[in-house]
Design a protein around this nucleic acid. Structure first.
Lengths: 239, 239
DNA sequence: ACCTGAACACCGTTCAAGT
DNA sequence: ACCTGAACACCGTTCAAGT
């Protein structure tokens, strides 16, 4: 766009061309939409500039480098989920919270990974962290272990969501990720391997089960780790 | 390297220059070493070519594109860990196995993430998967749930290791990741947030505790999820 | 202050040409 | 068959110059 040499009749300013002024807000809006469609790591700064009908340097002028833009996008996404009712028992609260997190984050591929890595900004994440810590303290964890559990559960959810993000994307490109797995093993000694392959075969032949395989793993991962946290809590209470 | 124009006295073939012939094996060796030092996502094909005193096109000729090289590197790394004694009870076996996995993978940043995403190749991962599945089947899981638990535990370990990889790398660059967290919250209503910040403060002021924070999270994550898997097993046995 | 347009230093990948 | 050396189409980032 805007690649042609200046033509006499062509307006030389955004104003004269009838284009809206570029603002930081409009840039983040565009970046959010690009993220929803392509994932946060996939769009380029040149694409973003194109989406607001501007030159790459304009992004730098109004917002900053790519990382700064992405940070702003992440903050926007974090503002989108709702926190469960604070009167719920801690296990139900977390189950609900992490499920909400997933449905929102899955709409913006790559955001979960960013949050796992950097955490949320204090600004955007503060209220969430406050509520989350309270549920754990009320449940009976001491200060340090509550902080640990908080980190564990948020990481658990974000990491498994980011796994879903990336595997979905890889599948779209190629369908040969699990190639080789599913076929009976050449070595008949490997009976455990054969069993896994049978299970994989069952999935591959039933397309709708295969569809929700990722979601199933997420739920299973969350449930098992919550079981583990609950058991730990019983140990604390018992001692 | 080899950037100057051809000089009369300069030998024009690797042989004449006394350089060893480039082989796929030598290329993977160099890639493995670059991975150990810089991480699998960080080195460039041009660096790899430089490491074997060759042009980038030579890598393509002998091995293939970047992804093919990385896949070969991952297979090499997988061959490096040892499997625990097969007579151990399933929980101890997994605890040991995932710990071994961590010590090996941590030496090659980025490999854990690749394994979480693509799994190992059938060639390299077959024996491990076989043993892993057997422990779960013997413990009492049915075929499908054993496959699920296997996937959960390997993913759990790889994802948390990859989190360590990336956070270590980020810390080396900047020390402001947790900037803002640790300071008392501006809003006095957020008592849960204040508690978290106290815990963070305690860590930051005790440097050796901060050092092992990542390792601590890994162990905690593995122990909680194993607790959860064990509890699930008791449910199955009871019914 | 805001925007243009070109440039810089990279990247993975491809390819004709040499030996 | 193996290697050279240059080129292609990208990328994030910077900057002097225009309005």
């Amino acid at each position: 766009m805007a690649k042609s040499a200046p033509v006499p009749g062509r307006p030389r300013s955004r104003d004269a061309a009838g284009l809206p002024a570029v603002t930081p807000d409009r840039i983040i809006d565009a970046a959010l939409e690009l993220t929803a469609r392509h994932g946060v790591e996939t769009w380029t700064l040149r694409q973003l500039a194109g989406a607001v009908d501007a030159y790459p340097a304009v992004i730098y002028h109004h917002v900053g480098d790519r990382d700064t833009v992405v940070t702003a996008v992440v903050d926007r996404v974090i503002a989108k989920y709702e926190l469960p009712d604070e009167n719920m028992p801690f296990r139900d609260w977390w189950r609900q919270f992490l499920t909400n997190l997933r449905t929102v984050f899955m709409q913006y591929p790559g955001v979960a990974r960013r949050v796992a890595l950097n955490g949320p900004s204090v600004q955007a994440g503060g209220p969430t962290v406050d509520r989350a810590m309270r549920t754990l303290l009320e449940a009976g964890f001491d200060q340090d272990e509550a902080a640990m559990v908080c980190r564990l559960l948020v990481s658990q959810a974000c990491l498994f969501i980011s796994l879903e993000d990336d595997q979905r994307r890889a599948r779209e490109a190629k369908d040969k990720i699990s190639a080789g797995w599913g076929a009976p093993p050449a070595n008949p000694e490997l009976s455990g391997l054969a069993t896994l392959n049978e299970s994989v075969q069952g999935r591959l032949s039933d397309p709708e089960k295969n569809q929700d395989y990722f979601a199933e793993l997420f739920d299973y991962a969350i449930d098992r780790v919550l079981d583990g946290v609950e058991k730990r809590l019983e140990e604390i209470r018992g001692s």
